[in-house]
């Protein structure tokens, strides 16, 4: 009984499956279009607004207006950062949800955010002379906290529940440290608050150049995790049966997720919400197959952060709000709407 004996079977996928594929592709294209539109809008709006024509001229490098300076030096790097950070955090959250098989998993669970915060806040408050090293310290702090969580969770393999519990405990511990420092140095808290709520304001090409290579590497590795993420959704026993080393896979996916979150937090500070909510929104739109869900998550994460950052600098202009606050205001209701509407996938 071998496959060769079978006539080449015509696979007649039902209309429903074709329709689903069509919908998935439409959502994917739609997400790309949405990102492009919001990206252009983010270049247009700010304390001064420009027409799309002026933006195109500025991007082409045509001199003659101050549009070029503002767009090229301020808004474009900011937009690129928002795209990278948004995509990183969304992928990170999606991978962790596969690792934990838990819809409440988000990048913060690995300890990355609180570890980075404590390190960054320590530098900003206790050693203000070293402020240039905040991104580096935040990244290292995030990594150490993540390692701490995973070494606590390790017991003949990695069990999702243990990671979640260890994550909660480590987060409480490190979060307490951050709070303590904030109280002790309450007179210098202003800059820290901006960082803790995540802000892309004042970031420049310098930050883009630092983040870009790591982001590209992280996103590529993340996309390579698609198959493994899918198999983990079938449960540990089924995954092991299919020849997956489940504990290895969990650690690899977690490290990738922590790396993506770590580089993002190090560059722009804490931005919550994207990593938790965007994978859900993607799931509601395209289902739980990571082949579609992960790329759509990346696109929507980027879009959401671009929108939120644009709003952060325009809504209460000239006051700039931390982008994290706006994101919750935008994304929360939209997420609730999708949740109520439902679909094949239900949370």
């Amino acid at each position: 009984m071998t496959a060769e004996k079978i006539n080449i079977t015509q696979i007649n996928e039902s209309d429903e499956v074709k329709k689903r594929l069509f919908k998935r592709l439409m959502v994917f294209m739609g997400a790309i279009a949405l990102l492009l539109i919001t990206a252009i809008l983010s270049l247009r709006f700010g304390s001064v607004s420009y027409s799309t024509g002026e933006i195109v001229d500025a991007l082409k490098g045509i001199e003659g207006s101050n549009a070029k300076t503002i767009v090229m030096n301020i808004r474009l790097p900011r937009m690129l950062l928002a795209i990278m950070v948004g995509a990183n955090l969304a992928i990170s959250g999606a991978l962790l949800q596969a690792v934990m098989r838990n819809p409440l998993a988000d990048p913060g669970l690995t300890g990355v955010s609180t570890g980075a915060s404590l390190a960054a806040v320590t530098i900003m408050l206790v050693f203000p002379a070293l402020t240039v090293y905040v991104p580096l310290a935040a990244f290292v702090g995030g990594c150490l906290a993540c390692l701490f969580v995973y070494s606590l969770a390790w017991k003949r393999g990695i069990d999702p529940i243990r990671i979640i519990l260890a994550g909660v405990a480590v987060n409480a511990l490190l979060g307490g440290g951050t709070s303590l420092l904030s109280v002790l140095y309450s007179d210098k808290i202003q800059g820290v608050l901006m960082w803790l709520n995540g802000s892309i304001a004042g970031k420049s090409w310098y930050h883009v150049r630092i983040l870009m290579p790591y982001s590209i590497i992280g996103i590529i590795i993340g996309l390579l995790c698609i198959n493994t993420s899918n198999v983990l959704q079938l449960g540990d026993d089924a995954a092991k049966n299919l020849g997956i080393k489940v504990s290895h896979a969990r650690i690899f996916l977690s490290l990738t997720a922590a790396f993506l979150a770590g580089i993002s937090v190090a560059t722009v500070g804490l931005i919550g919400f994207i990593g938790l909510i965007i994978p859900h929104i993607s799931r509601l739109l395209v289902g739980s197959d990571y082949k579609y869900m992960l790329p759509v998550s990346a696109l929507l994460g980027a879009t959401l952060l671009v929108v939120a950052d644009t709003a952060a600098r325009t809504v209460f202009s000239p006051v700039e709000l931390p982008v994290g606050i706006l994101m919750a205001v935008f994304g929360g209701p939209f997420f609730l709407y999708l949740l109520r509407r439902g679909g094949a996938y239900r949370v």
């Binding site: 959704q233 079938l234 449960g235 089924a238 739980s288 094949a344």
Partner: peptide, 11 residues
């Protein structure tokens, strides 16, 4: 095949 299997809702 284990006794109980998990599948994502839309496989």
């Amino acid at each position: 095949l284990s006794q109980q299997q998990i599948t994502p809702p839309d496989f």
